[in-house]
Design a protein around this nucleic acid. Sequence first.
DNA 1: ATTTACCCGATTAAAATAGTCGGGTACAAT
DNA 2: ATTGTACCCGACTATTTTAATCGGGTAAAT
Lengths: 133, 133
Amino acid sequence: MLKITRKVEYALMALRHMQEKEKGAVTTASDIAERYTIPNEILAKTMQLMARENIVEAVQGPRGGYRIKADLEKINLTEFFETLEGPLGLMDCYFDSECVQINCCTIRSPIQKINDNLRNMFSNMTVQEITSA
Amino acid sequence: MLKITRKVEYALMALRHMQEKEKGAVTTASDIAERYTIPNEILAKTMQLMARENIVEAVQGPRGGYRIKADLEKINLTEFFETLEGPLGLMDCYFDSECVQINCCTIRSPIQKINDNLRNMFSNMTVQEITSA
DNA sequence: ATTTACCCGATTAAAATAGTCGGGTACAAT
DNA sequence: ATTGTACCCGACTATTTTAATCGGGTAAAT
């Protein structure tokens, strides 16, 4: 429990990789996949997702690839995680959920407080802190 | 991602329930399961686990049940989570793992720092804070 | 003895995550 | 124009993790 997903890991590794290149240079998804032994198509998808979300910019065609578009110092980890994986919460009942305990759950509000702390912690860290630490 | 498990939720609800009764009184696993619509046998297992770990005490036979044994103010959440679910970490590679990226992973140490913060946060909270907030 | 309630390993089911496949579109170079 | 490279994307399958079930026990009060 309390794990981050592969997708998030791959995304961070890719961003870090691109950040080490000259600004404006592009890198192909398969270059990154090969470099870090990441399954090609799953990284491709992750890059596409980040492109849709304007974290990176895609350049199509031969000599194309991706480059960083957003200012990584301005994206906090709560935002980043939610962009890639959807709503963040220790329990599902804070967003969706037809949990059978919904009306008799006695720990919902105490856990909610912990959840707030957690979100807070992640909101106070930027993607940049991971990609260049 | 970053979810706590059902088992942990059930355990906390059970502890909270027992805590509301007079000290020394026992409650059966099926009473608790019924009260909160928890599948009987999964709660039973969870209670057995907590009994093995000396968090609760089991009284066998008719009129038996469980009562709280440990001082819940002295159990922090890191301990509690690890007792129920094993080692705590945002990524697997901090304990087990034959991760293919193990030698080329560029985000391991930054994530490790976040992991330390997370553990720290949970280590500074007690089970009591959840069961009686 | 019988009944109640804990004990526990093995198994199955369901859900979440991870990875694959196939058929597209954009565009630079020739 | 054609070719080749690289992004795009929905649908699908496999794997892993989590949740729940089953079956056959043991302890103890009445």
